[in-house]
Amino acid sequence: MSNDRLFRQLSIGLISGWLIVFVLLPNLMVLLVSVLTHDPERLVQFTFSLDSYRRLFDPLYARVVWDSLLLAATATLLCLLMAYPFARAIVALPRSWRPVALFLLILPFWTNSLIRTYALKNVLGAKGLVNQGLMAVGIIDEPLQLLFTEVAVVLGLVYILLPFMVFPIYASIDKLDLRLLEAAKDLGANALQRFIRVELPLTKPGIIAGSLLVFLPAMGMFYVSDLLGGAKHILVGNLIQTQFLKVRDWPFGAAASVTLTVLMGLMLLAYWRASRAIGRKGGELDD
């Protein structure tokens, strides 16, 4: 029996210990660093200050943060607009075909995301496929400047993160109780009403989970904006990276990261509340 206790304590202790040392502790450190003062000599100086947070609202940086939020939000919206009809199309497939469609969706996700970004870069270039195609058809006479613009960054983010939007939405549409839609139909709701009043609210957890999985990483993907957006400073990720690795202003970088974490917390809260609300209304949900 004492062996069993040992086994139990070992398995619980190992993971708890790991998470405390490599997740909890480091994040507390970042929180601490974010309220300290920058010191060019020794990285940080132990003087309490909210200066780093204030600087996030400094017009120079507020612009980066705002642009980054906007870019990530645009990418998320675009992902949602693509993923929702796509997920519905997969659910509409015969059951035996669905794994094939999902497999085709994951396949690129298993390849290096840097290489995928690079692949997109080639397509968007002045002599890339998009410009050559548009010129061949005669829509444009001169190549469009796509690369090194915000459009390219948004497309890059969508390209990398799309599967993360599809999966949760697919799961929630798949779980949808079709009888509810039939009931709405019998009660006289038209297709649009059924979609807006029944389907959309019931798949909200999937939508929020997907948005969470796209929006948050999108803000941090500095290599996408490096490759597709030129050397411009447009994502919070680039800001944090520069502050930490180049300028070495850790408190400021930490403050930006804490802000991102708070944003994540808020979105997680929204997600939990949405799934709980649906659980109460008797929708089919287990997690």
């Binding site: 040392v21 994040n27 970042v30 948050l216 919070v236 990276q241 930490f244 990261s257 974490t261 994540m264």
Partner: peptide
């Protein structure tokens, strides 16, 4: 669950600090 959701960049600087 939170670790899974945490943006890479947040985890990256936390670990660097550690």
């Amino acid at each position: 669950f939170v670790v899974m959701m945490t943006p890479d960049i947040v985890m990256a600087i936390a670990l660097l600090a550690l």
